[in-house]
Amino acid sequence: AQASVVANQLIPINTRLTLVMMRSEVVTPVGIPAEDIPALVSMQVNRAVPLGTTLMPDMVKGYA
């Protein structure tokens, strides 16, 4: 199954992502693919992302 990017902590709005904030997990619905984690580093989220939330393309500025 495809692993997705999941928030490893609460990520406040406009925060630049770092590796420690993200983990890969097989979840439904599928979000951003886990292999994109390196590309997500330093991108900003456009909303607060609670712990355990799957990151979707529309949550990350410049990803989609």
Score class of each variant (00 low, 15 high):
A3Y: 13
E25R: 07
V5Y: 01
Q2D: 15
S42M: 11
I32E: 01
V26G: 04
D58L: 14
D36R: 15
G62S: 07
E25T: 07
R23D: 04
D36P: 01
L10I: 15
A7Q: 00
R47C: 04
A3S: 11
T28N: 10
N8L: 09
Q9I: 13
V30C: 05
V20M: 15
A64H: 14
T53I: 15
A7Y: 02
P29R: 04
M56Y: 08
I13D: 13
N8C: 05
I13S: 10
V27W: 03
R16D: 04
L17Y: 01
M59N: 08
V60E: 01
Q2G: 15
P29V: 09
E25G: 10
L55V: 10
A7K: 01
A48H: 13
T53H: 15
V30I: 12
R47Q: 10
R23N: 05
Y63H: 05
I32H: 00
I13L: 07
M59W: 14
Q44D: 05
A34D: 11
P50V: 12
E35T: 12
I13E: 08
T15Y: 14
V41L: 11
Q44E: 14
M22P: 00
T18W: 03
G62M: 10
L55E: 00
I37Y: 03
S42N: 15
T15M: 14
A64Y: 03
L10M: 12
Q44M: 15
A34Q: 09
N46M: 15
V5S: 04
D36Y: 12
A1L: 12
V27T: 12
M56D: 05
A64C: 05
S24W: 09
A39F: 13
K61M: 12
M56W: 06
L55Q: 01
V60H: 00
P12V: 06
M21Q: 03
A34L: 03
M56P: 02
I32D: 01
T53G: 10
D58M: 11
L40Q: 01
Q9T: 14
V49Q: 02
P29M: 04
L19P: 06
M43N: 05
P38S: 12
D36G: 11
P33V: 15
L19A: 07
P12T: 06
N46L: 14
E35W: 08
G52E: 05
P29T: 06
A48M: 13
S4A: 03
I37T: 07
P33G: 06
M43I: 04
R47H: 07
P57G: 09
K61C: 06
G31M: 02
S42T: 14
P57D: 07
L55K: 01
M22G: 00
A1V: 13
R23P: 01
L40H: 00
V5L: 03
A34S: 14
M59K: 01
E35N: 10
A7W: 02
T15S: 11
V26Y: 08
M43E: 07
E25A: 11
V27S: 06
Q2N: 12
N46P: 03
V49G: 01
D58W: 14
I13N: 08
A64W: 03
A1K: 04
P33Q: 07
L10D: 11
S4I: 01
Y63N: 03
R23L: 04
A39L: 15
V30K: 06
V41F: 08
Y63C: 03
A39N: 15
V41Y: 12
L51M: 15
Q2C: 08
I13G: 13
Q2Y: 13
A64R: 10
P33L: 12
R16L: 13
V6W: 02
T54Y: 02
P57L: 04
G31D: 00
M59I: 05
K61A: 12
I11P: 00
L40E: 00
L10T: 12
L19K: 06
K61V: 15
L55I: 14
P12K: 09
V60G: 00
V41D: 04
D58Q: 12
P12H: 11
V30W: 13
A64M: 08
V60Y: 01
R23C: 04
M56T: 12
P50W: 06
Q9F: 15
L40K: 01
V49S: 02
T28E: 13
I37H: 03
Q9Y: 15
P38W: 12
P50F: 13
I37P: 00
N8S: 08
L40S: 00
I32M: 03
I32W: 03
V26S: 09
M22K: 00
I32N: 01
T15F: 09
N46H: 10
E35V: 13
T28L: 08
I13K: 15
V60Q: 01
M56V: 08
I37M: 12
E25M: 06
N14S: 14
V5P: 00
M22S: 00
M21D: 04
A1S: 09
L40W: 02
Q44L: 09
M56N: 08
E35L: 10
A64V: 12
L40I: 15
K61R: 15
S24T: 15
N14I: 03
I37C: 04
V26F: 11
R23Q: 04
T53D: 10
R23Y: 04
L40A: 01
Q9E: 11
I13V: 13
K61P: 11
L51G: 10
N14V: 03
V49C: 05
P50T: 12
I37S: 05
M21S: 04
A64K: 14
S42E: 09
L55M: 10
V6E: 02
D58A: 13
I13H: 15
L55P: 01
I32Y: 02
S42H: 09
